[in-house]
Amino acid sequence: MKKRGLGVGCMFYGIGFGFSRQDISAATIEICEDGSVIVRSGEVDYGQGSDTIFCQMVGEELGIPYDSIQLITADTFTTPNAGPTTASRVTYVTGNAMVKAARAVKETMQSVAEDILGEGDLVFMDGEIRSEYPDKRISFRDLAKTCHARGVQIVETAWQDITTKDVDPETGQGDAYATYGWASQLAEVEVDTETGRVEVLRIIAAHDVGKAINPSNVEGQIEGGVLQGMGYALTEEIVQEGGYLKTGSLGDYMMPTSMDTPRIDSHIVEVADPDGPYGAKGVGEPALIPTAPAILNAICDALDIRVTELPANPENIKRLILEKGKEEEAS
């Protein structure tokens, strides 16, 4: 028989290291004589898309296309230390360093532009610095050239520190993290009671990300996280025998494949964080945290069986179903 169930998982998660652990990041922005922009930061993009949003942020501040920015990252020889890509911190910490550095460069460039144009209230957009008069504007490139010619410094490094206070050592009370991500996910599953196999039919994932700098990227993060959470819930397992790893390859360690991917509905919730860049905060780890609880709750809804050991693979689910059958027979 196939039984369906619904389950919800909710979470909040501290962004950054928290608990008074040092949490700093840096970015350097250099405007070259030809108007090209070089951004340097030690932050590594290992697939989550931070390179893209850094360029978006710097492009947003300087009014230039994001794909015109040259980014040099994760090179200890040339980039300032930005700390690691962990703790769902990168958008929040390094994003702020990017915005700060871009604003510092912009401020200098703006004062030079005001001097050239003889106007205030200038706007940086579409590769130009514009005043309210159409004839009083200068291209970003010409402004950069002038700055260089005048010997004005248009290289800036910004430093962002989100190290928090520790909690009270006696009571454990306090605000341990700089900010928090919030999320709820709903899972719909179908359990084959004969084989113990759980099929995830659908995941609905709502994540408060403060502000989605790149909504496609955020959806990608959520979808990837959901699949990781699904693997954690249903199939992934580290097996050792006599101290030897028996699941040392992706042929033995069962991650979900594209064929196992359910429909995933991502809902981006934007409650701006007062200290985040444009209100943004992290979503990397939050994306996978509520998934397993949601799936296990859905299994419980379907079978009236509480799974307390992972993975909820066919063998374990079938065992629980058989045990429940025996208990009911006995009573």
Binding site: T195, T235, T257, S258, M259, D260, P314
Partner: peptide, 12 residues
Amino acid sequence: KLASRNAMARAY
């Protein structure tokens, strides 16, 4: 075929 996932799986 019964397996723990829908592709790239050894069957039960």
